[in-house]
Design a protein around this nucleic acid. Structure first.
Lengths: 210, 210, 210, 210
DNA sequence: GATGAATGAGAATTCATTCAT
DNA sequence: TATGAATGAATTCTCATTCAT
């Protein structure tokens, strides 16, 4: 095979991205290292030059994903110009359409056809993200838009419940069913957080055409 | 090894039960066919006489579990002597303590250390059980104890959300944290279904001693 | 590959013998499992059906070799019809020439081109055989043919020293050099054990033709 | 990594020394080239600039070790001020305690945790050293302190036998057992060389405290 | 119905060595 | 001289599945 030398960070990122994509598509257990390297066109040695084991690259992917998602959340949470509701919208809204690399919490939770990666990421996301959102909720309580006793636990429940949305693929829902469930999700969130009905409308934008 | 002949149904059930137990304990991927047959004391050939592949027995387990859980739910749902609330309690309550083979929805959703089995069962359980529970909710609406617009979707969301409880092991929650989350779960269910606060107290029984 | 079923003990013995031969020829580290199975014409699965790892078969070989060698020694040692000197001759003599499967201590110590197997066997042979020989020496002291203070340790030294003979291959000695060293070995043994010069002449038989 | 240029000889010696140390510690087969270069802080390319293969550096180490050991032996052997017995003591005695880089034949033969290096060095040491010692023995015969017919072969046997001492680790001997065997070794040497009992007492110095 | 010996296609990982820079 | 990214053949081991008995 032709020897193509690349900058280490570039090569590393290339491997992580490829593995990420394949793991999401076929599942961690169903992807051999062989598959990954064949996809990129590098040797096995190269893979193991950058990652000491298969679990190792899984962790690298999870870390990368979590870092991005947490960074976004913290940026929004720290923005003093926003109200609690606006922060919620910024994090949960569907406003990034079309932007190629837009980061959206809901979007990032969407990891079909996986197990290890799915759960590792989801669980850690829930654990890392919920405190940030809980603080926003607490701020909302002060602002008078939310009314809930245990923000952290409530957020964690809602996050988990929302996966029946993002896991739509596993559930085998149709587009219409997903829309229907999205509406219900909004309602439950509003009820659970003690928010005014309709205040989370940003989760279900009215589109002229689908 | 001594050749022990058994009635086909009995042998088949024996294999399913053993596999079920081992899969739940160590996880589907971590259980080899070897492990299963060694546990029973039967040969490889026998295993493949009853099941054509490893995925095949997984499906058999899921089917068995679902059949049991759905049968229970339908029995309760069909009992005209019970109110909607009593049916909820019968299905979600923690009242079966000590009864060896008691079937409890919450309990059956509790599948630690697993992936394939866990998700397959959970998802299908949600899909099969939610219509039954939704009908109970509708009955409760008529009875005036519930107030919710989309019972089916709401039930599905709540089921999924409740997993952050049953998945406590994965999340790494302590006993105290699990208790705290159980309370929140109750509150959200009550809010989402429009039930009187405290009406689902059976989910969090007060115990004299822990 | 054609599936050829054999009695387990037969198959197992076949693998052990083949591995033994290849290990002695090329060295343990230089023999892959692949080599062994190709030689026999069985599959990898078969190899690992009988031995759980590569070290495992090494141990099996060592055990087999030691068992044979120790069994021989004990039989001879227990023979009350023999004098100490006759026992020595039976164990160290060169009298089995031509008999295909004759077991001879000296012969069995001859394991060129090896490392792990060589040392494992040699060391354990020395450790297991030396007590038996030491008892013969003690008997010889009573009989008045030997005179030595610490039979066990002396035997162990002599065994180890004798390897410079059996390891002739490593040393690169010519046939003449080996003969010369065999004579010296005899002399040292006699001196170390306090035996009459020439009493170990059986170690260096006079041959008409080579 | 910073590129540090060194004089070729110095760099080469540095690599040999490091490899020597690591090989003796972990064994030749268990030391990867990676380990060696990481220890020194040099690149793979540099290693292969100085040595064309891994076996190549093994040979370099053996050569270096042998050169040192042979040089010492020849210096002692050529010293006309010493008697044969004094020369023996100088080469085999335990008198160098505390001197950091003291070279002692017995010490240099002591190569635990190794195989390839061990045997390569031992065998070659025996072959190169035995003629020198044999000449000392011949001198001793003239001086009347030794009485042996074939000095060279006898020395070779004794060298090899003495390894059951230095290989104590492999044999699993306790400190007491090693001491006991050291005494026996002395006795056999004296008998084999026809020396006065006790004349090799320097091999077993009486220590006040261990 | 039942047995268990046999299969073989991978899987992950290692590491001596090469070569573009 | 020196670097270190890249190579790839080789190795041990696993396990679902098959099939002769």
């Amino acid at each position: 095979m032709a020897r193509i030398v690349k900058a280490p960070e570039e090569r590393r990122a290339e491997i992580v991205e490829t593995a990420d994509r394949l793991f999401r598509k076929h599942g961690y257990a169903n992807c051999s290292v062989e598959m990954i390297i064949r996809e990129i066109g590098v040797s096995k040695g190269t893979f193991y030059y950058y990652f000491k084991s298969k679990p190792d690259i899984l962790q690298a992917i999870v870390d990368k994903t979590l870092d991005a998602i947490v960074a976004l959340a913290e940026t929004v949470a720290a923005d003093n110009a926003l109200t609690a509701m606006q922060k919620m919208e910024a994090l949960l809204g569907n406003s990034h359409i079309g932007e190629e690399d837009s980061l959206d919490v809901a979007e990032m939770l969407h990891l079909p056809e996986n197990r290890e990666l799915h759960e590792l990421t989801n669980i850690q996301t829930v654990l890392k993200l919920s405190p940030i959102l809980a603080r926003i909720v607490e701020m909302g309580i002060v602002e008078g838009v939310f009314d809930v006793e245990k923000p952290l636990e409530t957020i964690q429940f809602l996050f988990t419940g929302a996966q029946f949305l993002t896991d739509g693929g596993l559930f085998g829902f149709s587009a219409a069913e997903v829309r229907s469930r999205r509406l219900v999700t909004q309602t439950i969130i509003e009820k659970a957080l003690g928010a005014t009905p309709g205040s989370f409308d940003f989760m279900n934008p009215v589109r002229a055409v689908e």
